[in-house]
């Protein structure tokens, strides 16, 4: 009989095992939970930044069209904006293009007309209309029937534009908000906190 083999048999008691497994589970659970939480947090931050970029794009699109606009009207809920813009580029089907197809895609030479004692610069016989509208989670830009999605987010992007027409100038103020995924409660304050503002003047309606 020898005691050597007994000496080599190392082990934990049941109590030790229970304690160690318990501690390990807690540590692992904490690690997983924090990891998931961090990932959600990072994802929300990433999403916030991405949506913010969409806000910037919406404001930039609007300002570009308002700058060159002849007139702007907004809907009562301020979510649909219609802008009348000059027909600067000759398109297929325009009268100039019918007589000379090579003019398609070229800038149009303006004409001058006097109406009731005031001057008017015209690019072609008619104007184009650009409409910005909200469609579910997408912001649409429609020019002469061609629809472009300029922004789309699950964060409920909402642009609201106000048109201010004065005696000798006109401008639009736009506020774009979204509901960040950080916020579990969906409180209005969370949306307000994301507001991005933009102001654009109609260059064709100048002072003096």
């Amino acid at each position: 009989m020898t005691f050597k083999s007994l000496q080599k048999t190392a082990g934990f008691t049941l109590a030790e095992m229970l304690v160690s497994v318990g501690v390990a589970s807690i540590v692992l659970a904490a690690a997983v939970a924090s990891s998931v939480s961090l990932q959600k947090s990072f994802s929300a931050a990433d999403n916030y930044f991405a949506t913010h970029m969409q806000q910037v794009r919406i404001v930039d699109y609007l300002s570009r069209d308002v700058n060159r606009g002849l007139s702007v009207t907004t809907s009562l809920d301020r979510q649909t904006v219609s802008i009348s813009v000059p027909n600067y580029i000759i398109q297929a089907g325009d009268s100039e293009a019918m007589t000379n197809p090579s003019l398609i895609g070229t800038p149009r030479t303006p004409t001058v007309a006097y109406t009731s004692g005031s001057l008017q610069i015209n690019y072609g016989a008619s104007t184009s209309t650009v409409v910005y509208s909200l469609n579910n989670s997408s912001i649409l830009r429609t020019e002469n029937g061609a629809v472009t999605t300029i922004a789309s987010s699950t964060d409920q992007l909402i642009p609201q534009t106000t048109d201010v027409e004065l005696a000798n100038t006109e401008y639009t103020s736009t506020a774009v908000t979204f509901m960040p995924t950080f916020t579990m409660s969906g409180s209005p304050a969370a949306r307000t906190g994301t507001s991005l503002y933009g102001t654009a003047y109609l260059r064709n309606k100048r002072r003096g």
Binding site: R64, L119, I121, G208
Partner: peptide, 23 residues
Amino acid sequence: DRALAAEGERIDYRIVSYVEDMR
């Protein structure tokens, strides 16, 4: 005479139209 608004020697210039070539 409101027709005078479009007559006479030029005394200055003003910008009356603005278009951006978006292409």
